[in-house]
């Protein structure tokens, strides 16, 4: 994909909705456009901050390499999991055809 030029004022709702796998109607696109632009304009206040050299904080209490004993445990009941699927064929979840017929 070509590198897109960032537009920090307007959210490209159609592009973002496609990335998020949500098919929006034209009406929804228009509504979210206005709302998201307002939120994005607000969050630009972070540009006031001097953040040079600040270590990003992605987690409240970072912990690394949390390990446990590598021992077998019972997994979830496959039958219960399959019951929650919208469509099944035998023990498999049914989805539309992925690849075209050759």
């Amino acid at each position: 994909m070509n590198q897109r030029t960032p537009d920090l004022e307007h959210v490209d709702v159609t592009y973002v909705a496609n990335l998020a796998r949500i098919e929006l109607s034209a009406e929804e696109t228009e509504k979210f456009q206005a709302e998201l632009d307002t939120v994005v304009a607000y969050i630009h206040q972070l540009n006031e901050l001097e953040l040079e050299g600040v270590e990003p904080m992605s987690h409240p209490h970072p912990r690394e390499n949390v390990l446990r004993e590598d021992s077998p445990v019972a997994g979830p009941d496959a039958e219960l999991l399959l019951k929650n699927a919208p469509a099944c064929v035998q023990d498999l979840i049914r989805v539309p055809q992925m690849m075209e017929d050759s």
Partner: peptide
């Protein structure tokens, strides 16, 4: 949509990383 936007290519540093630094 907002979350996808701030994580998308070209915006990640402008929003997401900036917010992580401000969080610190």
């Amino acid at each position: 949509l907002l979350g996808t936007y701030v994580l998308s290519s070209g915006y990640y540093d402008a929003y997401y990383v900036k917010a992580l630094k401000a969080r610190a």
